[in-house]
C-alpha cells in the first residue's frame, strides 16, 4: 500500500496498543485529542468499517468552523487503519484545505501500531491520492528529491525538473 517515497512519521507512545487504537477509533475518545488547540471537535459521523466515514467539525470560540473527514479503507484492530483524509464542508463534500491551496485534496494515510514492552510505536505513512498514474509518479519523485534536501533554489529545481524527463 505505502509507496517507498511516501512521507513517514513515527512516534512512540507510553501506552498499550489497544488503547492507542481506541483513541483513534472511538468518537468519544477522538474528540479528546483530535483537533488543534482551542478547537472544539464534534463528531457528526463515525462509521468504523471499510467504506465508512468519520466526519467531524472543529470550531473556534469565535464561531469559525472547519469540517473534515476520513474514509476508511481497511481496519484491522488493533494494528492497522488505512484511511483517506480530506477537508470537507458540513455535508461531507471534499474541499480545499482552509490554510493552503497547495494541500492535496485527498491524502491516503496508513496507520500502523506495534507494541513492545507496553509501549506503542505509531507509524503513519501518507501521500496524496486520486491523482493519475502520472501524478503519482510526479509526487513520488518530488518526495524523493525533497527528502534529499530539495531546498527550492533554481539550480536544484532545474535538476529536479531535468530528472522528470522520461
Amino acid at each position: 500500500m505505502a509507496k517507498k517515497n511516501e512521507l513517514v512519521i513515527a512516534r512512540v507512545f507510553d501506552a498499550p496498543r489497544g488503547l492507542v487504537f481506541k483513541a483513534w477509533t472511538e468518537a468519544e475518545r477522538l474528540v479528546q485529542w483530535w483537533g488543534p488547540k482551542g478547537f472544539d471537535v464534534k463528531v457528526s459521523q463515525l462509521n468504523l468499517r471499510p467504506g465508512g466515514i468519520f466526519h467531524y467539525s472543529m470550531s473556534l470560540p469565535d464561531g469559525n468552523e472547519m469540517w473534515g473527514k476520513f474514509v476508511y479503507h481497511e481496519i484491522t484492530e488493533p494494528e492497522r487503519i488505512v484511511f483517506v483524509s480530506s477537508f470537507s464542508d458540513k455535508d461531507g463534500s471534499i474541499t480545499r484545505a482552509p490554510f493552503s491551496q497547495a494541500w492535496p485534496l485527498e491524502v491516503l494515510n496508513e496507520l500502523t501500531l506495534t507494541e513492545r514492552d507496553g509501549k506503542t510505536t505509531l507509524t503513519l505513512r501518507g501521500g496524496p491520492i486520486n491523482a493519475t498514474e502520472e501524478e503519482y509518479k510526479t509526487f513520488e519523485s518530488a518526495f524523493g528529491s525533497m527528502q534529499q534536501g530539495f531546498g527550492g533554489t533554481f539550480d536544484q529545481l532545474d535538476e529536479y525538473l531535468a530528472k522528470q524527463h522520461v
Binding site: L7, I9, R11, F13, D14, A15, L19, V20, A23, R29, Q32, W33, W34, G35, P36, K37, F99, S100, Q101, A102, W103, P104, V107, L122, L124, G126, A142, F143, M146, F150, G151, G152
Partner: peptide, 24 residues
C-alpha cells in the same frame, strides 16, 4: 509549494500526535 506541502503535512501530524500523547 510542493515542498511546503511536506512541511505542512509533517507539522499537522506532529501537532495531532502531541495532542494524542497528552491525552494518553
Amino acid at each position: 509549494e510542493v515542498s511546503d506541502w511536506v512541511a505542512q503535512y509533517r507539522e499537522f501530524w506532529d501537532k495531532r500526535l502531541d495532542s494524542l500523547e497528552v491525552y494518553l
